[in-house]
Each structure stands twice: as structure tokens, then as C-alpha cells.
């Protein structure tokens, strides 16, 4: 990934003046849009955009065997695809470390915050519901973490719940008709920060991501921090981490409102 020297100089120059390449302040988000139900074939779906970054989350729910250590709970699986159409820098092939990190960090937030009520996904002995969250990056302009967690949360919170109907020895999954909703219990959002020239910024663009030394994603709900991931090779001081946690709690109020509005609460 490359950008012109002049763009780099401009970004750094703006940062020293406490502004961003697009005129934002250090801790401002770009405009956020969130729309649910964009892919009606999926049990749940949502498309989130932050500026030019677009991520589509699709939810599918199947019957599966429970994990050995949690025989009475459902499964949750999160995967991310950096589609080659989303950026000139993405290539075809199996998910690389970036896609795996993205999926795992979003997964940790959802899991730790109990967004899905996993205890209610038990069907019968050796049969539980398995919830698949697939994150499709449709356009890359930085900050995939926050766009992905917004899309994933909104898709889960608005997802249908298939029914399992017994037919003699076996059973079948009913995905249409009069269905309830996937049992959920919480909302989680994330705030991603970067560090340029020892200054902290929120919601870095693709251009800014070329110049950040380190990145911190903080996923939280109303009361607690649920997941954290530091990325890249820079370092953060303890004071910087404290400041970012403070900002994340404040900014996440807006993000939760955006989700609530999108799902019609």
C-alpha cells in the first residue's frame, strides 16, 4: 500500500495542527451509515459504512454439534474476507493474518459481551444452533474494525431465528414463515485509534493507516471494556491507553445509538 509523498506530508502537517486530512478533529468519526436487512436471504444482514469504508455482515444459522466443553451452548463463528474488489491491494487466496485478526477481534467483542445469548441456542442433546457471522469488506478506506463490529452487531440484533422441526428420527430446519428473533442480550461496539507523530487519532482512513505507528481497538458495552487489541509495531504509553479508554466509552454512546436506530429500537 502506497500513497504519494505529498499526501503523506499533508497528513502529517495536518496532524501537527490537530486536524485530519479530511478536516476532522482528532477524535471525530467520519459519517457513519448503518442499514439492516440488505440481504434478505440471510437470517440477518447489515451494511455499515464509515466514510468510504463499507462492510457487509451476513448471518447464517445452522444446526450443528456443540463444542465439547460447552455441550449446552450454541456456537458462534466469525470470519472476515478482504475481497479483492474492495482494494487494489487485496489479493485472492485464503485469509491472511490481517483478515484473521479482524475476524478474531470482532468475534472476541461479540463473545465477551454476550451479544448472542448462547445458552438459548440449545436444541437437544448433541444438537445446538451454530451462528455464522461473515464479514465482507466491500470497500477499504481504513478502520475495518469499527465498521465490521457495527455491521456484525446490527446484523445479529436484527437476525431471524430458524426453527428446528422434528420429523421422526431426524429433523429439518425451517428458515421462512413465522419466525422469532435470534436471542440477544447486549450491544457491543468498538473504537479504533491510531498513533501518528505521537498524536492519537480516532477512526483512521486508509491514507492515515499508512502512517500510524500503532493501533488500538477497544470494544466495549455500556459498562465494561470487553475486548482490546493492539496492532502494528509502535508502542503506547500507559497514559495514552487511559485516554483512549476514556474516549471509547464516550464515543461508543453515539455508536450504540446508531445501532439502535438502525434496528428500529
Amino acid at each position: 500500500m502506497k500513497t504519494s509523498t505529498i499526501t503523506g506530508e499533508y497528513i502529517k502537517d495536518m496532524i501537527t495542527k490537530s486536524y485530519r486530512e479530511d478536516g476532522r478533529k482528532m477524535f471525530d468519526y467520519r459519517p457513519i451509515n448503518l442499514k439492516i436487512g440488505t440481504m434478505p436471504n440471510a437470517e440477518g444482514s447489515a451494511e455499515a459504512s464509515i466514510g468510504q469504508t463499507r462492510v457487509l455482515a451476513g448471518i447464517k444459522i445452522d444446526v450443528a454439534e456443540p463444542m465439547a466443553d460447552k455441550p449446552e451452548e450454541g456456537n458462534l463463528m466469525t470470519a472476515a474476507e478482504l475481497l479483492p474488489l474492495a482494494s487494489g491491494d487485496y489479493e485472492t487466496g485464503p485469509p491472511g493474518p490481517e483478515a484473521i485478526e479482524l475476524a478474531r477481534v470482532v468475534d472476541r467483542g461479540i463473545r465477551a459481551a454476550n451479544v448472542v445469548d448462547m445458552g438459548k441456542l440449545f436444541i437437544e442433546k448433541d444438537k445446538v444452533w451454530s451462528v455464522f457471522v461473515d464479514l465482507y469488506v466491500l470497500n477499504y478506506d481504513g478502520n475495518l474494525f469499527d465498521a465490521s463490529s457495527l455491521a456484525a452487531s446490527a446484523a445479529l440484533l436484527s437476525s431471524r431465528m430458524p426453527k428446528y422441526e422434528k420429523e421422526g428420527e431426524t429433523g429439518k430446519v425451517v428458515r421462512s414463515g413465522n419466525l422469532g428473533k435470534l436471542p440477544t442480550a447486549n450491544i457491543v461496539t468498538s473504537c479504533t485509534f491510531g498513533n501518528i507523530l505521537h498524536r492519537l487519532i480516532l477512526d483512521p482512513t486508509a491514507n492515515e493507516e499508512l502512517f500510524i505507528d500503532s493501533r488500538l481497538t477497544i470494544a466495549n458495552d455500556e459498562h465494561s471494556i470487553r475486548a482490546v487489541q493492539k496492532g502494528l509495531n509502535g508502542a503506547f504509553s500507559f497514559d495514552e491507553i487511559d485516554e483512549m479508554m476514556d474516549t471509547a466509552f464516550e464515543k461508543s454512546r453515539e455508536l450504540r445509538q446508531i445501532i439502535k436506530k438502525a434496528i428500529g429500537e
Binding site: R108, V228, F236
Partner: peptide
């Protein structure tokens, strides 16, 4: 440097608890 190079978290913690953990 007295700085943090790897920092991951998973579960439920308050801001104060994270500072104490550091």
C-alpha cells in the same frame, strides 16, 4: 521505553482495572 508493545484483552473489565493490570 516503559511502553506497551502487545496489548490484548478479552472478557469484562473497567477502565480502572485495565490500568491496574498494566
Amino acid at each position: 521505553q516503559g511502553k506497551v508493545l502487545l496489548f490484548q484483552m478479552d472478557g469484562s473489565m473497567s477502565r480502572e482495572q485495565i490500568m491496574e493490570a498494566l
